[in-house]
Computed example of a mutant assay.
Amino acid sequence: MQARDFFRLLLLAAIWGASFLFIRLAVPAFGPAPLMAGRVGLAALFLAIIAWCWHKPLLLRGNIRHFLILGLINSALPFLLFAYAAHWLTASVMSVLNATAPIWGAVLGVLFFRQPLSLKLVSGLLLGISGVAILVGFDAVVLQPNAAMAIAAAAGAACCYGLATHYTRRAAAVEPFANAHGSMWAAFCWLLPLALLQPPVTVPSPLQGIALLLLGVLCTGVAYLLYFALVRDIGATPTLTVTFLIPVFGVSWGSLFLNETVGWHTLAGAVTVLCGTALVTGFTLSNLWGVKQSKC
């Protein structure tokens, strides 16, 4: 991996890590459904402009059902769950729980997709559970009335990402940019009715409006373009190492801009979760620095 590619990987992790900061800022005013409907709607419009500039068709014919499923499990539902959780959980906690997605994917693979159960997978699962227990068990958030539901929602969002990984591997092959573009419009269709039923809580401040704009354009639209460019240039496996970098930025942004407390349990829980994720995914440093993989 060249220095330029590593910088882009860091940039992608910084952008996705910042999404939890922007959710925390904006959700008190917009509410979960309107905020996420706005996020995917802005992302869909942004990708539509890019598609027009690049002459890339949406490929709706024969793929509407596929886009609806992918938009639901990879965007609409996890985004909504994280927005709900953001009422009580810090950006730091959410970013670490987000990193459990590969562990959930492994569990679903064993339970429903006949993947073999290995010692490495079991060890990674146990480490992941231990890391989450350390992360939230020693955090003041557990003392809040709705903490359990918020933690379950964030874990459910990560589980959705694990499920989406299995779905995309088994679904009919669709060009990656079309997947991103089509699924954003589908996610908007899923979330719009909920947003209309739940209007914004208060009039958003200019800062909260900017947070929504950055969520949609930067953390979703631009991030997708950056992600697929990395998959094209360095391969899927090295690109997925972004999973290990997102919590670093999620914790940093939360501490820097929201004055969130980063205790020993935050760092210990994050490290334990990431070790479990590394075991489940088979991650090694060669994935990050190794030779270029085959393109997807």
Rank of each mutant, 00 (worst) to 15 (best):
P200H: 05
L215S: 05
T202W: 09
L218W: 04
F228K: 04
A229L: 10
P206K: 11
R232S: 10
G235S: 14
Q198R: 11
G221V: 00
G235E: 10
Y227G: 02
Q198E: 12
G221E: 01
P199C: 09
V201R: 12
A211C: 07
V217S: 05
Q208H: 08
V203E: 14
L230E: 03
G209D: 02
L225V: 11
R232F: 06
A223P: 08
L230W: 00
P200W: 10
D233L: 09
L197T: 11
L218D: 09
V217Q: 03
L215G: 05
Y227K: 02
Q198L: 04
S205L: 13
I210E: 04
L212F: 10
D233T: 15
G216Y: 10
P200S: 12
G216L: 06
T220Q: 00
I210F: 12
G221Q: 01
A229W: 13
G216T: 13
Y227F: 12
L225C: 14
A223N: 10
T220C: 00
L213S: 11
C219D: 06
Q208L: 06
G235N: 09
L197H: 11
C219P: 05
A223K: 05
T202M: 08
Y227W: 14
G209E: 04
T220K: 01
G221S: 04
A229T: 14
Q198V: 02
V231L: 12
L218I: 15
P199E: 13
I210D: 01
Y224S: 01
L207M: 11
C219W: 06
L214R: 02
L213K: 09
D233W: 08
L212D: 01
Y224E: 00
P206H: 07
L213R: 08
L213D: 09
G221K: 00
L214Y: 08
V201A: 14
Y227Q: 14
V222F: 15
Y227S: 03
V203G: 10
Q198N: 15
P199Q: 07
Q208E: 15
G235C: 07
L215M: 14
L225A: 01
G221Y: 01
Q208S: 08
P199Y: 13
Y227I: 02
A229S: 14
G216R: 00
L213P: 10
C219M: 09
P200Q: 07
